[in-house]
């Protein structure tokens, strides 16, 4: 139940619904029942947030892409101007792990009440763009050995880092 409660809280599910699930689990409902109800509650919450706040979803996507583009510009500038050999590899680590986590954190910070839905909206836009990019450039990418698998790995890590950064964000409770 603890994990389900954590998940439901993370996705911003209403406390009364959470209380209903706790009550039913305590009354003898199975773990499978709880898992299905939790999944339904999360899906419903995300759908509701996106339907009710389409402008916020667009803002979250724009925020994410703006920060990603800003990092791309900085990355290119450092690559051109840096004389240190180790600088580029450090920048790659920052690009794949640290910056996406920061982007996720920023989206969560600027959309606190609907952070999970807004994060997923941005990640969905990233997945869509990646699919478009790989489809459009498939012939060129496939010619280079291991390029596709490397790109897919990096893209997956970037998206996971974004989600981790967003979900690690702890909104300050208002009393």
């Amino acid at each position: 139940m603890k994990f389900a409660e954590w998940l439901l809280r993370t996705f911003g599910v209403d406390e009364t619904l959470l209380g209903d699930l706790v009550e039913e689990r305590g009354a003898g409902r199975s773990a499978m029942w709880l898992a299905l109800q939790t999944a339904a509650a999360i899906a419903t919450q995300i759908g509701r947030d996106l339907r009710r706040h389409p402008v916020l979803a667009l803002r979250a996507i724009a925020t994410g892409w703006l920060l990603t583009t800003a990092w791309g510009v900085l990355f290119n500038w450092v690559e051109i101007h840096s004389r240190h050999r180790g600088m580029t590899s450090m920048m790659i680590v920052l690009t794949v792990l640290v910056w996406p986590a920061f982007v996720g954190w920023m989206i969560a910070q600027t959309h606190r009440a609907q952070r999970a839905a807004m994060l997923l909206a941005y990640v969905a836009s990233g997945v869509s763009w990646s699919l478009y990019y790989y489809t459009a450039h498939f012939k060129e990418i496939i010619r280079i050995p291991n390029q596709l698998s490397t790109d897919a790995l990096f893209t997956s890590i970037i998206l996971l880092s974004t989600l981790a950064g967003g979900f690690l964000h702890r909104p300050r409770r208002v009393h």
Binding site: V13, L17, D20, L21, A40, A41, T44, Q45, R48
Partner: peptide, 11 residues
């Protein structure tokens, strides 16, 4: 019916 669906309808 999922309890979440009930709440969605109630809303």
């Amino acid at each position: 019916v999922a309890i979440a669906s009930v709440y969605l309808v109630l809303e």
